[in-house]
């Protein structure tokens, strides 16, 4: 059973491929994307994706722009920013725009999985609350 459905977004193809292999080996369901635009398309096609792990510096559409778009179209999807030069400033900027957390390259696999689990848990709790609110709303509407 996968801890979460993940979308891994990075323009470094070898990194994405190896990371995917390693995640799959740990029974993590992961899909690849190689820029922000592609990530948005994937999210549009696959609504089961729960967590996006995304590089900041990418061609076509960079990580920050993609984050803004994801949060606007898929607000419940959690995003973990991944960067080669993590700084407090970029981290804060990302989190202001709704990112769950950020990680520095190269990152420790165990640390990554822990973060993904936290993010997925957060998403599910969020969904749960929304679900409960909807159920309550329906119940209240019934005569």
């Amino acid at each position: 059973m996968s801890i979460a459905k993940i979308l891994l977004v990075d323009d470094e193809k070898p990194f994405v491929e190896t990371m995917m292999k390693r995640l799959k080996k740990r029974d993590v369901d992961v899909a690849p994307a190689y820029d922000g635009q592609e990530a948005l398309e994937c999210l549009g096609q696959d609504s089961t994706i729960e967590v996006v792990i995304m590089d900041i510096k990418m061609p076509v559409m960079d990580g920050m722009e993609a984050l803004r778009a994801i949060k606007s179209k898929h607000p419940l999807v959690e995003v973990i920013m991944l960067t080669g030069h993590a700084t407090v400033e970029t981290g804060i900027d990302g989190m202001r725009m709704g990112a769950f957390d950020y990680l520095m390259k190269p990152c420790d696999m165990e640390q990554l999985i822990a973060k993904v689990e936290e993010a997925a848990k957060h998403k599910r709790q969020h969904e749960q609350k929304i679900m409960e609110a909807r159920v309550q709303a329906i119940t209240l509407r019934r005569p």
């Binding site: 470094e12 070898p14 990194f15 190896t18 990371m19 390693r22 510096k57 960067t83 080669g84 030069h85 520095m104 390259k105 190269p106 990152c107």
Partner: peptide, 14 residues
């Protein structure tokens, strides 16, 4: 730092 970290990340992942 960014340019180095990316290949290093790949190496470590590999």
């Amino acid at each position: 730092a960014h340019e180095i970290n990316n290949p290093v990340a790949i190496m470590i992942e590999e």
